[in-house]
Design a protein around this nucleic acid. Sequence first.
DNA 1: ACGGTGTACTATACACCGTACGGTAGACGT
DNA 2: ACGTCTACCGTACGGTGTATAGTACACCGT
Lengths: 221, 221
Amino acid sequence: MPAKTRTPRNTLSPELIVRTALDLMEGQGTDAFSLRGLAAELGVGPMALYTYFRNKDDLYDAVRDHLMGLIPPVPEGVAWPDQVRAVCRGLRALMLQHPCLAQLLAGRPLSGHETARVAEGLLGVLRSAGFDAQTAARTHTTLFTYVLGATSWEIQMAAERQDPQERRRLRATIESLSPTEFPTVVELTPELSRTTGGDEQFDYGLDLLLAGLQRGQQASG
Amino acid sequence: MPAKTRTPRNTLSPELIVRTALDLMEGQGTDAFSLRGLAAELGVGPMALYTYFRNKDDLYDAVRDHLMGLIPPVPEGVAWPDQVRAVCRGLRALMLQHPCLAQLLAGRPLSGHETARVAEGLLGVLRSAGFDAQTAARTHTTLFTYVLGATSWEIQMAAERQDPQERRRLRATIESLSPTEFPTVVELTPELSRTTGGDEQFDYGLDLLLAGLQRGQQASG
DNA sequence: ACGGTGTACTATACACCGTACGGTAGACGT
DNA sequence: ACGTCTACCGTACGGTGTATAGTACACCGT
């Protein structure tokens, strides 16, 4: 009784749809992605997709979980702070490589097998490092939200810097700031734009968190 | 020659539009917000709004800057870590009070007078605390992205918890995880859901960052 | 071999979106 | 009093996600 096995009979399959969707999102921007465009790319009618996904959000979830599967496993044989660094950097690298991932993570709840795998890796590291259940959970959430926030910001800033119109708008905004009202902002504008994004900025914040963690660990244990 | 002064002649004004838009976003959710709905609420045609705002994004920017103006100024007469805490908590509190702010901050570049004011406050604190220009800029970005990421996540989780359908979906996802494949996730699920969101979770991450900062400051100066 | 059933996909349609374009009516400087 | 400027309107276009109904083909029990 095979029954419920949805054996794709013809051209379509969930994997193909997800892969094509991902290509489109990366090629033309996440915001410009549409089910109709995806269907056209696949050479089918828009409604054909509804055989495989309940709706657009369901497809988004599938794409997100597919991407999360690309995060490398936790490295063995190194100290736990380096394991944490590896996981965080892996997630960031994936988000930079697939900018749509930032929006997919921000806009939808977590779910999916691969997403759980990543969480399992990070939580396992923290537990092995000796953190109690609550601290491990708190730290996991903190690290995850930091990576998400920092990298999303980075991606957005990078996208803007490429849009000439936005560049002009940004420059105009900065130049319109009165140096007497906002002395520090005006003074640090070059630093702010130089330090926005990049591995160094990301690692700076990550190291702050890890330093705080190790200090707390030292104090309590 | 007054010339360019766009004196609102009748019912509309930028302030009224922004305030009404904010009400609608909070009342019915940011995603459900539309220019047509806003115009209807104001009793005008959709195109009337284009007299005051170039497009929807322009209106979003105005709403965002309006909200940023509600962040209280940096408190005087306390140690700098407490000043940092106050600014970060102020931003988080505002985001929680106006959930649309998270999406407005995430989806658009920073701009606007009030936004610059907030940056000025935090940067000034860091400079006064003795950080050099680059470290102050890096720290500012780190803190900002942390607050943004952590609070956005918190808001999203809270929104989901209220949707019964999402609740069921989440529970189903968790229960489908094999305890042998994801032992730590399964074990820590109660901790994870208990510690997601809330002042304690936010302060935990913020204190990690501040602890790292103070440790670095001690070491270098 | 063949009719019935289930399913992958199509066709049509609906409600809604942002906004480009052109028009109108009333306030204002002269 | 008149011309100009502008706040707002009406219409229209191309786009969206998706509900609903229909179609054609693969499979299965007979």
